[in-house]
Amino acid sequence: MICLLMTGVEDKRSVYEINGNKITKRIRFLGVRFSSFNLRIDFYRSVFLVQPGPVPRHAPKRVKSTLKLDQMDHISNEWTDTDVLIFNSGHWWTRTKLFEMGCYFQVGGSLKLGMPTTTAFKAALNTWASWVDTSINTNRTSVFFRTFEASHWSGRNRNSCKVSRHPSLDTKGKDRSSISDTIIDVVKKTAAPVTVLHVTPMGAFRGDAHVGSWSDNPSVPDCSHWCLPGVPDMWNEILFSYLLSKNGTYLQ
């Protein structure tokens, strides 16, 4: 989004990260100010949305950390005083990024060692929905939730990545995602108005658009993330269309 907006800025020096940090997805927080337009875009890295926690007392040795499914990430305190909030989650809700790393689920003081990731994800989203309903003034703040983007891993263990040369004509079932279905289901039940940016189907055709072997580590192909410019730019175009429509601006 920042790159897209930069195309409309004449003096590139007027755009800067407020703490002087380099713009990278690995940092916990980035604040990019467009000083000529009185605009600031903040990025918060909270991949689970809920609060990570330490190992509880008397936990089994395999438990190295927890996710507190009934508590929002503490960084959410920074999100309430804003004009637009855009959420997404799901990419890290896998066994490899959780259980194999020793991270298990917790509700209150109770460990939920046998809880499936799908159940935990829905519990976390319900915590998020409750937070939106009670903490966000939707008369001021527009809230969006982007669904899970399609990935194009293949093979029995979904560990093979072969980037195609062209967009496909068949989604091969990748236009559906249980994660996206959960997001849509939870958002439908929120009292606050939340707009779902449902991007799963549109990316399903674009097996050609992933990073592949052009990643930071070419020996490990990537069929989850996207090349830029590319598919994520269209997500931003869709978002902008919603914002312009809400503000009463006629779309050309």
Rank of each mutant, 00 (worst) to 15 (best):
R13G: 12
G114R: 12
G248T: 12
S177C: 12
L4T: 01
H210T: 04
W131N: 00
A204W: 01
D185N: 04
K172T: 14
S180G: 09
F87C: 02
D222V: 08
G114Y: 07
N236H: 09
L169R: 12
M202Q: 12
F148P: 01
L69D: 00
V220P: 01
E237Y: 15
P232S: 10
P218S: 09
S224W: 07
C103P: 04
P54Q: 10
R62F: 12
M101T: 15
N126R: 10
C223R: 02
I179T: 05
K174Y: 09
V199L: 08
S177W: 03
I183N: 00
E149F: 04
V107R: 15
R158Y: 08
C227Y: 10
T119A: 10
M234D: 08
G114F: 11
V194G: 04
T66A: 12
A124L: 05
R146D: 02
G173M: 07
H198N: 15
R146L: 05
I2Q: 01
L49Y: 06
C161E: 02
R176C: 03
D73W: 08
N236D: 09
E100W: 07
V84S: 07
E17D: 14
M1E: 05
N88D: 03
P167L: 08
T249S: 12
V55T: 14
N88Y: 03
N137W: 08
K97C: 03
S224P: 00
V84H: 13
T96V: 14
L98M: 15
V196E: 04
W214G: 04
Y104P: 09
P56K: 05
N88S: 13
R146N: 00
A129H: 04
T96L: 08
T119H: 11
V187D: 00
S65T: 03
L39V: 07
V186W: 00
T82S: 15
S177D: 05
M115G: 03
E10V: 14
W235I: 02
N159K: 07
S76A: 15
Y250E: 12
F29A: 05
E149K: 14
F121A: 00
N157K: 14
L30I: 08
A204E: 02
R62M: 12
V15M: 03
V63T: 13
D170N: 06
T96Q: 14
W92K: 10
G31C: 10
R158H: 13
R146I: 03
A124R: 01
S110T: 11
F205D: 02
R57M: 13
H74F: 09
V186G: 00
M72S: 03
S178I: 14
V55Y: 09
S160E: 15
L49R: 07
T195V: 13
C161T: 08
Q71G: 06
W128K: 01
N38M: 12
W214Y: 14
D70F: 05
A204S: 15
Q106I: 13
M6V: 06
I86W: 03
T96N: 15
H198L: 05
T24L: 11
V231E: 06
K172Y: 13
T200I: 11
A192D: 08
R28D: 13
C3T: 11
T118C: 08
L228I: 15
L197S: 02
I23Q: 08
P60Y: 08
W93K: 13
V9Q: 04
A124E: 05
H91M: 11
E100A: 06
V194T: 11
I136L: 07
N88H: 10
K97V: 05
T118I: 02
F105C: 06
G230D: 10
